[in-house]
């Protein structure tokens, strides 16, 4: 190191570049040169999307929730079918269907619907999130597993029951936490 002029030049240039980088970072104003897509933008964008999603679900699925709360479960299911045609693949429809089927006592079908919902959107199991439905998913899985296990034992060829049992185990696994 520092044996000749070239080494000294390289060290001096290195110090200058490091100094310039430090000065740039210290003196830069937060807004100067900020590009779209930086983390603060993305965080805000995410928050906006999350809030917009909740508002969207309230607006479009509100009538279903209202029917469900009034106990008009069949009408709520019919309304959900209509919404499924408008928003195919939207997990909130599957969640509400699971909720309604659970209230109707159709535990196996409720479990299958809830599994579709949770696969589509993990936010339903975030205890602190606005879409939290842990309680519903927990009771459906807890009641569904023994019921479906007995059915599979009694009829080992019942592939549908076996598939729903796997859904119930999936829900239990997701409720237990761990890496996703």
């Amino acid at each position: 190191m520092l044996r000749d002029r070239f080494d000294r030049f390289a060290v001096l240039a290195l110090l200058l570049v490091v100094g310039a980088l430090g000065a740039l970072l210290v003196t830069a104003r937060p807004s100067a040169g900020r590009q779209a897509g930086s983390a603060p933008d993305r965080q805000v964008e995410r928050e906006l999307l999350a809030q917009a999603r909740v508002a969207f679900l309230d607006r479009h699925y509100g009538p279903v929730t209202a029917l469900r709360d009034r106990g008009e479960l069949q009408s709520a299911l019919l309304k959900l079918e209509e919404l499924d045609r408008r928003f195919p693949g939207e997990p909130h429809g599957a969640l509400l269907r699971g909720d309604i089927l659970y209230r109707m006592g159709l535990i196996d079908r409720a479990v299958a619907s809830l599994a579709v919902a949770v696969r589509g959107n993990g936010d339903y199991l975030d205890a602190s999130g606005p879409l939290n439905q842990r309680e519903l998913v927990t009771v459906a899985a807890e009641q569904g597993i023994p019921l479906l296990r007995d059915r599979v034992r009694a009829q080992p060829d019942d592939r549908q029951a076996a598939a729903v049992l796997r859904d119930a185990y999936y829900l239990k696994s997701r409720l237990a936490g761990g890496c996703e």
């Binding site: 597993i145 796997r166 185990y169 239990k172 696994s173 237990a176 936490g177 761990g178 996703e180």
Partner: peptide, 13 residues
């Protein structure tokens, strides 16, 4: 400690 094959956190079958 929950000894089980099913419903474990972050596990598939």
């Amino acid at each position: 400690f929950h000894l089980a094959l099913y419903g474990q956190p972050g596990a598939h079958l």
